[in-house]
Design a protein around this nucleic acid. Structure first.
Lengths: 233, 233
DNA sequence: TATCTTAGTTAGGACATATAACAACACAAC
DNA sequence: GTTGTGTTGTTATATGTCCTAACTAAGATA
C-alpha cells in the first residue's frame, strides 16, 4: 500500500470515483423515492455491476445510509459557514438573515437531504458522533454569533426561568459557546426550532396546499427574532 | 350480506377484531423499528397466520400504512377536540394552552404516530383527502378559536404584508375560518409551525442530548404567542 | 516473475411483497 | 337439512431485496 501522502495511486483514484458514483446514484434514488427507495442492488444494476460488488464499498445498506446522512449534515454546515464567510463585514442583522436564508435555500434545493438530516433516521445505522456533533453545531454557532452582535437595545435579554438558564449555560459550556449570555442562547435555540418548524412543513408541501407562500412566513419569523433581540417592537 | 344497520353479524365482528389486531401489531412494529419495520408478513407471523392471509384485509403494505397515517391524523384531531371540549368555559388563554399541551402530550405519548402524520409519508400510498383535510384542519380550528378569543389589547393585530394578507384570507375561506381576522390567522399558523418545530426535534431526542428541557421551550413559545396576541410585552 | 491485495463475478440463504389456486367454513335461501 | 355462495384461510410460486460464501481476474509490489 503506497503512502497516502503521495499522489493517489491508480487504484485509489478508481475507488474514489466509484464511491462518488455510488453516492450520486444513492441520492438520486432517495430524491426520487424517499429513503425507502435506497437499494444497493438497484444502484449496482444502474451502474452496470452485480449486486454484491457494492459490498466492497459499503458494508451494508445501513452504512451507506449513515454515510449519506453524515455527509449531508456536513454539507449543510459547510453551506452555512460559507454564507457566513461571504457575509463578513455586513451588519449583524444582515449576517443573521444571510445565515438563515442559507439554511432555507439548502433545504429547498435538496429537501431529501434536509429530511435525512432532521427526519428520523431509521435504517441509518450508527452515526459517528465525532462528525455529527460538530456538524450539527456549526450552523448554530453562526446564528449565535450574529444574534449576539445585534445591539440588544432595551434590556429584556435575560432568561427569567432559572432552571432553563442553568440548562442553557450547561449546553453552552459543552459546545464552546459559554461566552454568550443566556438570552442569546435561548434566542438561538428558538431561531432554530422556528425555522425548522416552517422548513420541515414546507418541504412536505403543506403550504402550497394552503396557498400560502412560506417564504413570507420565514421572513416574518426572522424579523420577529431580530425585533426580539434588539428590543424593538 | 346483512344490512349494516342491523347488529353486526358474527363474521363482521370477527373481521373487525382481526383488523384491530392487525393495526395493533402494525403500530407496535413501527413504534419499535420505524415505518421501515412495518411488515405484513411479520404481522401475520406474530398473529399466527400465514402471510398472504393479511391480503384479505389490506390490499398492500402501502394501503396498511396509509390507513395508519390517516387514523393517526384523526386521532390527533380527536384528542385536540376532546381537550377543547374539556376546556370549555375556561379563559381563552387557558383554552389555547390546553389545546397546545394536548398536541404535545399526544406527540410524546406516541412519537411514531406524530412522525407518521408530519413526517414524509413515503411508502404510504395515497391518503384520502376526504379524511385527511378535515383531520388536518380540526386542531387548527381549535387554536384559531382560542387565539381569536384572547383580548387583542393594543392593536398590532393586522398583517402588514398585503400579499400575505390576501393569501391568509384565501386559506381561511377555503377552510371555513373566514370569520377570523388576518392577524389571528397568521398567529395560528405561526403557533403551529413553532410548536411543530420544537416537537419534531424533541421526539428525535436532540434536546435530551443538549441537556435542555423542551417543555420549558414549549411553554416559553406559548407565552410569547399569547403576549403577541394580547399586545402585552 | 511470483506473491499479495483488491475488485469484481456467480451461487445461494433468509425474507419481503404479492398473486394464484385451492380448501374449509359461515351464512342465506330453498 | 341441503345446497350454493362468498369469506377467510391455506400452500405454492414469481420476483426482488440484503447479505455471505466461494471463486476469478486484475492491479500492485517484492
Amino acid at each position: 500500500m503506497p503512502a497516502s501522502a503521495t499522489s493517489p495511486s491508480r487504484r485509489e483514484r478508481l475507488r474514489a470515483q466509484t464511491l462518488a458514483e455510488i453516492r450520486e446514484h444513492a441520492y438520486a434514488q432517495i430524491a426520487h423515492g424517499g429513503p425507502t427507495a435506497l437499494s444497493l442492488n438497484g444502484i449496482a444494476k444502474a451502474m452496470g455491476m452485480s449486486g454484491p460488488a457494492l459490498y466492497r464499498y459499503f458494508a451494508s445498506r445501513d452504512e451507506l445510509m449513515a454515510t449519506l446522512v453524515t455527509e449531508s449534515y456536513e454539507d449543510l454546515a459547510d453551506t452555512v459557514d460559507a454564507a457566513a464567510e461571504q457575509a463578513r463585514g455586513r451588519s449583524a442583522e444582515q449576517r443573521l438573515r444571510i445565515a438563515l436564508d442559507a439554511v432555507r435555500d439548502w433545504a429547498l434545493k435538496a429537501p431529501y437531504r434536509y429530511r435525512l438530516v432532521f427526519g428520523s433516521t431509521y435504517g441509518s445505522g450508527e452515526l459517528d458522533p465525532e462528525r455529527i456533533i460538530p456538524a450539527a453545531h456549526r450552523p448554530m454557532s453562526v446564528i449565535l454569533a450574529a444574534l449576539s452582535d445585534i445591539d440588544a437595545g432595551s434590556g429584556q435579554g435575560t432568561v427569567s426561568d432559572p432552571v432553563l438558564r442553568r440548562q442553557l449555560k450547561g449546553w453552552a459550556e459543552n459546545t464552546n459557546e459559554a461566552h454568550h449570555d443566556p438570552g442569546v442562547l435561548l434566542l438561538g435555540l428558538t431561531a432554530w426550532t422556528r425555522m425548522h418548524g416552517i422548513l420541515s412543513l414546507e418541504i412536505e408541501g403543506i403550504f402550497t396546499q394552503m396557498g400560502i407562500d412560506p417564504e413570507r412566513l420565514y421572513q416574518a419569523e426572522i424579523n420577529q427574532l431580530i425585533a426580539q433581540r434588539s428590543g424593538r417592537r
